[in-house]
Design a protein around this nucleic acid. Structure first.
Length: 652
DNA sequence: ATCCCTCGAGTTCA
DNA sequence: CTCGAGGGAT
């Protein structure tokens, strides 16, 4: 009986480990989650009744007790870090140096993962110790944490003594999943890994769904492994997760080709990499070439320009938005980040500044989210002269006393310069009156010359008003006046958007235009009529009613109409009920080759579809162009249909 | 009251 | 893109 139970447990452990390998390492599940769970539950039962847990049991992966402290581990051999280069010259020099010592060397090319280096030891086929690199000589013991990582084999076929090295990482997909449920979001994948592994509670490690990508053997009894290629084969054969990139090259040019290729696709990878590692393939030759005090001379890391850096926060500017909302912007010492020089980055709001503990004259972490918008992630280092950031009490533009609503500060002065300028800018913007060529700069100039005070004044501008203004030549004047004139013919939804009613933007304006068909009807819309519309609740309904109660707003509308603004009647279009996009919620991401975003939106809307801004489980499909961002990752994570450009066109 | 989803508003640089 | 908050379901 007892023996049978043991046999059954062994069988379950092996079976479950095999399934886990197919799922977590090969990414090719071979059983349903349901079947897996059934076997897993059975194993848990048996382990409880027998009070035994086999050393490679997958139940070890959930993480047990919180550890009292880290134990130090002294590495058998020093773990070197890699020498770096960041251009082709550095790479060529490396290759030349090797070629001067070795005849016809071969090089292996792999990803350099941006995570935490992990050393794992096996004896008799079982994982018995894991450690961080630490300073290369002494690391921290993290055996319990690493055992929770499902792609790390607890048991391998190789029975000799073995020490392997890999990089602890989190896939961007798993990071996104984690952030969906976590109270405290982890913005930085690398820190998410370090935080998860270097945590005394292995349960924390388990929750973050890390992986370890293995790339090296530190020591092994088996003497016939004599090259990096054989190392790679060995790791694969023993079911370790390995990097997707592994190529063998002979020249610097070939290596450079791979680097260029990776540089192009690196932002689309599911894993963060910060470079490429180039190693001499032959292990015996490596030992001949040797080491400097810091680095092996037989390998180099080609580093891509970093996407995250630190910089000094010099000043905080407070902007006034068109709604009167006050927004803090951090002015930083300019740094180059993802191909652009960044000097400003948003700080969101005062609470955010406090939460991140950001101080003036301190070093802060800066990154460009999605490689575009700069943001300040948090405090890196403070100094003696670092000071708290003060919350403003008066409007930086008009000095009106600010009021606090929720976490935000507002300027309520109707005539506030910055607020008015932003209001007019919004009025002229693409989703509103679409006055092409009227930039916020021109609006500022016109405002300060007192030629305009509010949006309707734009339609009173004459040629003589503009003549003589610095930078305004005949051509520019006639272009501008022409654009303004052209904008007078507008669609109802754009007109509603242009009014700038609090909480009413592009989508709500469209909903309102559909329901009320003309301005007079909208003007007398009652609260009850408004809340009937889907997606309009009591807050927005009240904002709309209040807006049309205000004398100054009604006067402004009258001014616009008197200046000749006319709202086109929209004809109703027939929609094809059988079209793919009919009644579908579609998200656009990336750049399509043949359509602008607005054109694609129109095509989908004309077919009865709705373009929404973010991906969720309610989304029907995601249309994906080149350089797609995180929305594509999210779509994949949620298993939502992704259409590439050609599929998109086919379904029109 | 408390979820989740979606919208609006504000964000940078070339 | 990201945040906060509104809206609706529960």
């Amino acid at each position: 009986m007892q023996e049978q139970t043991m046999e059954r447990m062994k069988f379950l452990v092996d079976k479950l480990n095999e399934y886990a390998y197919n799922y977590y390492v090969l990414d090719k599940p071979t059983v349903s989650d349901y079947d897996y769970d059934k076997l897993y539950d059975e194993l848990v039962q048996l382990e409880q009744t027998t009070n035994t847990v086999l050393p490679s049991s997958p139940t070890l992966r959930v993480g047990g007790e919180v550890l009292p402290d880290y134990k130090k581990v002294v590495h058998q051999t020093k773990l070197y870090s890699l020498n770096k280069c960041n251009d082709i010259q550095g790479l060529k020099k490396f290759v030349l140096d090797i070629e001067s010592l070795v005849k016809n060397p071969k090089f292996t090319v792999e990803y350099k993962f941006d995570g935490l280096r992990v050393i794992v030891k096996y004896k008799n086929g079982l994982l018995y110790e894991a450690a961080t690199r630490g300073d290369g000589i002494v690391g921290e013991e993290i055996t319990e944490q690493v055992k929770t990582i499902k792609s790390v084999p607890l048991k391998i076929d190789y029975m000799g003594d073995l020490t392997v090295a890999g990089e602890g990482i989190i896939t961007l997909e798993n990071l996104a999943k984690y952030n969906k449920t976590a109270d405290e979001k982890l913005k930085n994948a690398r820190n998410a890994v370090a935080g998860a592994i270097r945590n005394l509670d292995p349960k924390v490690t388990a929750k973050r769904n890390l992986d370890v990508v293995f790339y090296d053997i530190i020591s092994i009894d088996d003497k016939h492994i004599d090259s990096q290629q054989k190392v790679q084969e060995f790791l694969k054969a023993n079911k370790f997760l390995t990097g997707q990139l592994f190529e063998v090259c002979q020249t610097a040019e070939q290596i450079k080709e791979i680097i260029d290729r990776v540089d192009k696709i690196k932002s689309k990878l599911n894993i963060l990499i910060d470079g490429i590692v180039i190693k001499l393939d032959n292990l015996a030759m490596r030992e001949e070439i040797g080491y400097t005090t810091k680095f092996p001379k037989w390998a180099i890391a080609y580093k891509f320009a970093p996407v995250e850096m630190t910089s000094m926060l010099k000043k905080v500017e407070w902007n006034v938005g068109r709604t009167g909302k006050i927004n803090p912007i951090g002015i930083i010492e300019p740094i180059e980040l993802a191909g652009a020089v960044v000097s400003r980055a948003t700080l969101n709001n005062y609470d955010d500044i406090k939460r991140k503990n950001i101080l003036l004259n301190s070093l802060v972490f800066v990154r460009r989210s999605n490689e575009v918008i700069p943001e300040i992630l948090g405090l890196a280092q403070k100094f003696d002269n670092s000071t708290q950031i003060q919350k403003p009490t008066h409007c930086p533009s008009c000095n009106q006393k600010l009021i606090e609503i929720g976490i935000n500060l507002f300027c309520t002065n109707e005539f506030c310069r910055e607020k008015q300028i932003n209001k007019i800018t919004y009025f002229a913007s693409k989703s509103c009156m679409n006055i092409v060529g009227l930039s916020d700069k021109i609006i500022t100039t016109l405002f300060d010359l007192k030629l305009i005070r509010q949006a309707s004044d734009l339609y009173k501008l004459s040629k003589s008003d503009l003549e003589g203004i610095e930078g305004f030549k005949d051509k520019k004047i006639s272009n501008l006046l022409h654009s303004i004139e052209k904008s007078k013919n507008c669609q109802f939804n754009n007109f509603i958007d242009a009014l700038g009613i609090d909480g009413v933007g592009e989508k709500t304006a469209k909903d309102l235009a559909k329901k009320f068909t003309n301005l007079d009807a909208l003007k007398c819309a009652t609260f009850d009529e408004l809340v009937e519309i889907n997606d309009i609740g009591n807050v927005i309904a009240e904002n709309i009613v209040d807006f049309f109660k205000s004398k100054s707003n009604l006067l402004e509308i009258q001014n616009l109409l008197d200046s000749g603004v006319t709202i086109e009647q929209q004809e109703k279009k027939e929609v094809d009920l059988n079209n793919f996009f009919y009644n579908k919620k579609v998200v656009l991401t990336g750049t399509l080759e043949n359509y602008k975003r607005s054109q694609a939106t129109k095509l989908i809307e004309d077919r009865g579809g709705e373009v929404v801004s973010s991906v969720s489980k309610n989304t029907d499909c995601v249309v994906c162009g080149s350089d797609a961002g995180s929305k594509l990752d999210k779509a994949r994570a949620l298993n939502i249909l992704v259409l590439y450009e050609d599929d998109f066109v086919k379904n029109l």
